[in-house]
């Protein structure tokens, strides 16, 4: 596999060891008629090359808005980044002019959306749309671009790529369309891919195919991958580490396997308990009480406090910082954090 030299070389490669992308204290607001909705309230996370970070959350958690801010595709207005930094290869891309950021998109970072059908242009063949990436960014000829497009379709394992290169989006099934979206995202060998609910619209049997493909491509080319999802099951398969978001904040971080065994935040714990299991019938489901937060009126203190069984007075007044989570005897648990005043009680029982 060859590395394609791309136009936007203004941003160099990461110094060894440093993360590929680092989000620092990001705040995003949306102006609405009823007031300012604080969609993201101080998010920190990082992804290294070859690493997969899963960002898990429900609607209104701010998981997608954070991704849009990274890509620079926030609906603005009404949305705006109110505060914070996004370091990509060590450089704060929020400070870049729009023309520079545009060069980053596609070249250095790419995004895969949930709805592949509406992300593809219905009146252009998929081959043309794939080839366009090379013509626009690398000045390839039409013929070479088409060849590249077929190569790409092969890479994402679309059967009979040669014959199907002239087909239109609606002629492909949902799973195949999502593969085309993936092909488009990896076309210019970006360093970072953000996948926003990439398999949510797909059937279970197709979901597994697409997730496997994504994971494999990522391994091959050592990209950083941010996987945004609401599905705890999808996360378990492919992610290295996980950040759980609630009401615009990260409430828990952990290496992926540990979070299922020992969640350190009552929200994560509740979520895990509320999912029915495939391998046993189970009794009545545990249900987190109450409603997801209204972003126009996020509860004071810990945003989860009205729904939390462990909530005390302090939870209603003080916003919990992301505590470093350790073993009961103080032993280290690398990568673990919990934004709960009572994380010890939560994880150690």
């Amino acid at each position: 596999m060859t590395t394609v030299e791309t136009a936007a070389e203004s941003i160099g490669t990461t110094a060894a060891g440093g993360p590929l992308l680092e989000v620092r204290d990001l705040h995003v607001e949306f102006k609405t008629r009823d007031g300012v909705a604080k969609a993201v309230n101080g998010v920190n996370y990082s992804v290294s090359a070859g690493e997969t970070l899963a960002v898990l959350g429900e609607s209104g958690s701010g998981k997608s808005v954070t991704a849009q801010a990274i890509m620079g595709i926030l609906d603005s207005p009404p949305g705006r980044v109110a505060q914070g930094e996004i370091l990509f290869h060590g450089q704060n891309i929020l400070a870049l002019p729009e023309s520079e950021r545009r060069k980053l998109r596609g070249n250095k970072m790419a995004m895969i959306f949930q709805d592949a059908l509406s992300s593809l242009n219905p009146v252009l063949s998929v081959g043309f749309q794939l080839g366009e990436m090379f013509r626009a960014h690398q000045g390839l000829s039409k013929k070479d671009a088409k060849k590249k497009a077929i190569e790409l379709m092969d890479r994402v394992r679309i059967p009979a790529a040669k014959e199907r290169v002239g087909d239109y989006a609606h002629q492909f099934s949902g799973g195949m369309r999502q593969r085309i979206m993936i092909a488009m995202a990896i076309a210019l060998e970006p360093d970072l891919i953000i996948a926003d609910e990439p398999t949510t619209a797909l059937d279970v049997t197709v979901q597994a195919q697409v997730m496997d493909l994504l994971a494999e491509l990522q391994r091959e080319s050592n990209m950083g991958l941010i996987l945004i999802t609401h599905d705890l099951g999808v996360v378990a398969d492919v992610a290295d580490k996980i950040a759980v978001m609630y009401a615009g904040r990260i409430v828990e971080t952990a290496p992926v396997h540990e979070i299922y065994k020992r969640p350190a935040h009552p929200y994560t714990k509740g979520l895990l308990r509320s999912i029915p299991r495939l391998d046993q019938k189970g009794q009545e489901l545990y249900a987190i009480k109450g409603l997801p937060p209204n972003l126009l009126a996020v509860p004071s203190g810990c945003a989860f406090n009205p729904r939390c069984e462990m909530a005390q007075d302090i939870c209603r007044t003080d916003v919990p910082p992301l505590h470093t989570v350790t073993e009961a005897d103080g032993g280290e648990l690398p990568g673990r954090g919990s934004a709960c005043h009572f994380w010890k009680e939560t994880i150690h029982g």
Binding site: V204, A208, D231, G233
Partner: peptide, 21 residues
């Protein structure tokens, strides 16, 4: 094919990935 939110249970499972649509 159902993703199971439990990596350990996952490890014991056999996955059948269907081809095609």
């Amino acid at each position: 094919a159902v993703p199971v939110p439990d990596p350990e249970a996952r490890a014991h499972r056999e996955r059948i990935i269907l081809t095609g649509d």
